[in-house]
Nucleic acid binder design. Structure first.
Lengths: 239, 239
DNA sequence: TTCTGCTATCCTGTATGACAGGTTGAGGCT
DNA sequence: AGCCTCAACCTGTCATACAGGATAGCAGAA
């Protein structure tokens, strides 16, 4: 009495895929929002006529796509958007040489010109302060590249958040992993302190333009910043 | 003799997460590229001292993130970049009202201005022909909105591919699902044939600028196109 | 009566064994 | 040499079992 399942037709991609579809459709029908609970694995197993194994693999898939969140002992919940969701994919593309670092920086340049302009228009006071704080912190820790990098990443992410469009945040977050791997290379290629100071000053200038509400200036400075960063990476021999 | 596993420390996130890390690191160490095979589930189960269950859930997660590809009977292989990888995440964000349609279009406007300019600079002859073909096909099927939409989607994706930066393709592809759901609304809001003709002409003009190699003109026309599309959605009451 | 602590219950994480069915390569037959 | 068959391997799914986290409800103490 193995297959009692002749009634539900599996798509050509197997039961797990069908189940993923069924669960997403169920979320849609029930109009579940972030934080809402999904049925338990056992319940879904009964309702969809598949084993708990299949439900679990479907859950894992949905969790990997950041549509739901799993935690032990508790039911699965609908997930909030997470800016880190896309990082693994981009890192994989770069590692397998399907994406070059320069291509990543070209996209960042395009996106962040816009986030800088939007941030200048839409930032809250708190967001303005946070952006400025990251920029000044970068200068303070001038001898600790690790800390400079963290504040640099925080700087760009804070600008994306201040642009008040979560899709931009998502995209900027997607590049954080790759940036973390390539940043030290670019930093080392800026040989003397003068070159390093130029980069730090640029960050401060961008923060200033955003805080003072000059979108065009913020965008232009951001473009300049990326031109300079890309140049530094080329000097270091990054393709 | 249940837990023989005291040697390998599980991270605080459970064995599946640790195993995902171990597998990605293994791919890195072995320098696996797209198409290369991973070890079998049984082998990994032995090597990593976890059950096949854990290996399978880790594989499902990696497959959901599009880092690997699974197929029955064959071993898992390292995946090529797939422009459709991000669609589910964006759709989820829109469905749960964490992202608005206008925010999606603002990002598309930003990105596709750039892809249009790059396409004008870098397109191959074949790519130019394909872009133009989509634009003219949209006019031919003027009475079949379904077909117009498909050629519209193909048009924008072809431009992204002609820009020769897979990250742009990835991002443009991410919005295909959402666009497919909102496109008909925008189309219906263009009441008379004159308004519809404007949109079709714009596509043809963009294709022309790309084929003739005018990046600035292509970008400007693309911006105009999105301004018009966003206006049409606002008229239709899309927030 | 209200607060506290314990327990029964539900739920997820992991392991194990079993079997159906797809895939592939090694031999053997023509 | 070319083709065919089959055994070995591999993934997909199911059933069952148990450890341990989470939680509500009940009982006892203040």
């Amino acid at each position: 009495m193995l297959y009692t399942n002749t009634s539900s037709q599996d798509g050509p991609e197997g039961r797990v895929s069908s189940t993923i579809g069924a669960i997403t459709q169920m979320m849609r029908s029930a109009d579940l929002g972030p934080g809402d609970q999904l049925p338990s694995e056992a319940t879904l197993s009964r309702d969809l006529n598949v084993s708990r194994t299949v439900i679990r693999e479907a859950f894992r898939s949905l969790a990997a796509m950041r549509l739901i969140e799993l935690s032990v002992g508790k039911r699965a919940t609908v997930a909030e958007l997470d800016y880190a969701a896309l990082s693994p994919l981009i890192e994989h593309g770069v590692r397998t040489e399907q994406i070059s670092v320069q291509q990543v920086y070209d996209v960042r340049r395009t996106i962040e010109q816009r986030t800088a302009a939007l941030a200048a228009l839409r930032r809250s006071d708190d967001q303005g302060r946070e952006i400025l704080a990251h920029a000044t912190a970068m200068k303070v820790h001038a001898d600790a590249p690790e800390k400079i990098m963290e504040h640099d990443l925080g700087f760009h992410l804070a600008i994306a958040k201040a642009a008040r469009n979560p899709v931009f945040t998502l995209i900027v977050g997607a590049f954080e992993g790759v940036t973390r791997q390539t940043w030290p290379i670019g930093w080392r290629s800026r040989k003397d302190q003068a070159e390093q100071a130029i980069m730090l000053d640029l960050h401060e200038a961008i923060a200033g333009a955003i805080v003072e509400g000059h979108p065009q200036r913020a965008a232009d400075l951001m473009a300049k910043h990326f031109d300079e960063s890309i140049r530094a990476l080329i000097v270091a021999g990054i393709s």
